[in-house]
Design a protein around this nucleic acid. Sequence first.
RNA 1: GGACAGGUGGCCGAGCGGUUUAAGGCACACGCUUGGAAAGCGUGCGUGGUGUAACAGCCACCGCGGGUUCGAAUCCCGCCCUGUCCGCCA
Length: 429
Amino acid sequence: MHDIRFIRENPEAFDAGLKKRNLAALSAELLEIDKRRRAAISGSEGLQARRKALSQRVGIAKRKGEPAEALMGEVAALEESLKKGEAEAARLDEELTHRLEVLPNLPFDDVPEGTDEHGNVEVRRHGNQRNFSFAPKDHVTLGEATGEMDFAQAVKISGARFVFLKAHLARLERALAQFMLDLHTSEEGGYTEVNPPLLVRDNAAYGVGQLPKFAEDMFHTDNGYWLVPTAEVPLTNLVNDTVLDEKELPLRFTAFTPCFRSEAGAAGKDTRGMIRLHQFPKVELVSITTPEQSAAEHERMTGRAEEVLKRLGLAFRTIVLCGGDMGPASRKTYDIEVWLPGQNAYREISSCSNCGDYQARRMGARYRPREGKGTRFVHTLNGSGLAVGRTLVAVLENYQNEDGSVTVPEVLRPYMGGLVTIPAPAGRK
RNA sequence: GGACAGGUGGCCGAGCGGUUUAAGGCACACGCUUGGAAAGCGUGCGUGGUGUAACAGCCACCGCGGGUUCGAAUCCCGCCCUGUCCGCCA
């Protein structure tokens, strides 16, 4: 949600931001609505003030036992133009809100130009793509060979884009999640673990910007709940409708949850394997900060997500998304892409966004600055730390051995009961 | 699912048709006091909009929406939400 006052004072910056989003300039049009809206408000407020004063005089007259009919008549005469004025003001105010709430956030100046993913810019790389002495298999081949990754049965029960993980792979997923949570909640991580609701109401989905534009991407229950597409929704809404003290900031929350996405419009995309499912596990990171801190917090958060991959020994690159490829709520987004030998490609495993005050405005999340009066909107940030299902894919593909066994990365072994190798399919019963 | 109760500022809480300009308390800020602190005392302090160079001023807001009235936090209707008890249930 944009601040009309910002647009009023910085129309050219606003239009420049829209341009980076590949949208046409709108400030002139919006300011015209705003102008009419303010005129309507001024007009109706004048009439309201008049009615209030007259009504008070009626009260005084009645108490004194004086006739009040003349005054009452005056109020009645205002009635029609008052109603019209109020309705016009309300209509224009609503129109402006509807126009503003569907617009995406303005990209920061350091966000690159571009219309799609080709405009994204790599900012760093870490680790080496493993050299295989054999042809590496993808995670589906590896997982199905042992029967521990079962798409065929999932289809019968839930349809496409679902999977059963069993035995070592089920445990590996749990191990990954626990490893990530332990890292994020450690002293250097600084996040507080949260176990949030996974069904939310409209207002929560609206607050983070999922509604009204992205209703078709979420699952909806027949009694009005949305299944969360990411824990960002409940975690960020932890500050919905609150006024925080500056000294409480920053707040850092992490949660391990399933995420539910209908993947509308993704027909035919990533149909093989665990890359794109209707239900997937993810460890989410959310930070609530002051406007001054948010850029530094964004770097920090991205660094914490990268730290997971470093400790797992997985090669990755970090890219900054261009204006045309960012999510609507974001002012700047880093994607972290992990190397997948089975796909011979880097694939997104985390996305870290600084949403500025865009979500805070929508959900009413403010703080009292230490200095100065009044309240200000907080900045909200969210990132994956990491997508657990895709991390499992990365571990399988990167740590596979020629016989189909998979070496367990060292940091995960304590979570796997000391297991060093997930055995090859041959020789199993 | 059934019955009842209730939604007021950052929080608690009074008000139930007209000097409410929403009492009072807590929290917060500043000052006095103190060796220092606590306590105490004093002052300030809601949100949004409009308006202004900035103040001032003005309007709205007591869950949301409609209605009654000259006038609604207060009365009426609908909706949403919360709580309590009962039932069912992991």
